[in-house]
Write a protein that binds this DNA or RNA. Sequence first.
DNA 1: TATTGTTATACTCTATAACTATA
DNA 2: TATAGTTATAGAGTATAACAATA
Lengths: 159, 159
Amino acid sequence: MKHDRSEIKGDARPNTTGLEQLIGYNLKRVYMLVRDDFRASLAGDDLSPRVFSALSLTVENEGITQSEVARRLSIERSGLVSIIDILEERGLVQRMPVKGDRRAQALHPTFKGNETYDRALKTVFKHEERAFDMLSSVERDQMMALLRKIRAGSSGGQD
Amino acid sequence: MKHDRSEIKGDARPNTTGLEQLIGYNLKRVYMLVRDDFRASLAGDDLSPRVFSALSLTVENEGITQSEVARRLSIERSGLVSIIDILEERGLVQRMPVKGDRRAQALHPTFKGNETYDRALKTVFKHEERAFDMLSSVERDQMMALLRKIRAGSSGGQD
DNA sequence: TATTGTTATACTCTATAACTATA
DNA sequence: TATAGTTATAGAGTATAACAATA
């Protein structure tokens, strides 16, 4: 039997075993911490993470199509519909025809959309400041570099 | 207007703006990549991430109560019930009475539970090897250290 | 044939509230 | 009063399959 625990009493087992030794588990816990703070931060502007990210891509890439947004966020086209619906109902984004391809819908931010995004982005910067304030500037750069390296190294993790 | 895009044509905008500059967004994308590979890895043993983590805590802390498992995983007690149900139905874990507190249920791994965990843990190690194989040994240690520092620095992120 | 946007549908994960039996 | 386990329920978030219009 591999798990002979007869010599270990109660909780004396070191946390070098089990979940805590796994990078993936620590990654999950950190992701959840950061996500919760992110969500709470943007709740004031009534923006969910999904809606914020779609707004961001629209503002930063005026005229982008829905399919392209879905591709960049790695979600299904079908799932994006309700997100754009929300942005359009709130007057932050407009669906407009694409000349040359009558299937596609180009997404354009409204003035209010740009304003809302600018405000939200400031909120997000404050959130990042808070969420990672236990890291030094060098450590944050390290973190970003490691995350980018993992994304670049995983097949299909480009965008 | 802050977002004057008149001087930027098409997609020429550098990706130092928007989502890609955020640690949180890169964290999310990496988490999703790793989670998908983790899930696919354990699918062969018919274990979801949730079930695996509960099994892990049970094997590593024989006699742990449901409430304690929920606390350590930062999920609600109510959500744990179905997870333990699955483990018990599959004969991997047994609910047993706690002497001195008749409200509590102590969780004990069965022989099969220990076996299954050992096998699953090997699978998970292979998954981690694969998911982070673009990082050097030093970089993996860096990553782990950074993640632990973030958890330690966030209020309530101890366990 | 393939792609865009869309709808309908279902499934996973999780949170909340309420209940019971104990403490 | 507070806690452990449980049930019922509802809400996100996401994936799949199918469809009409267009390429």
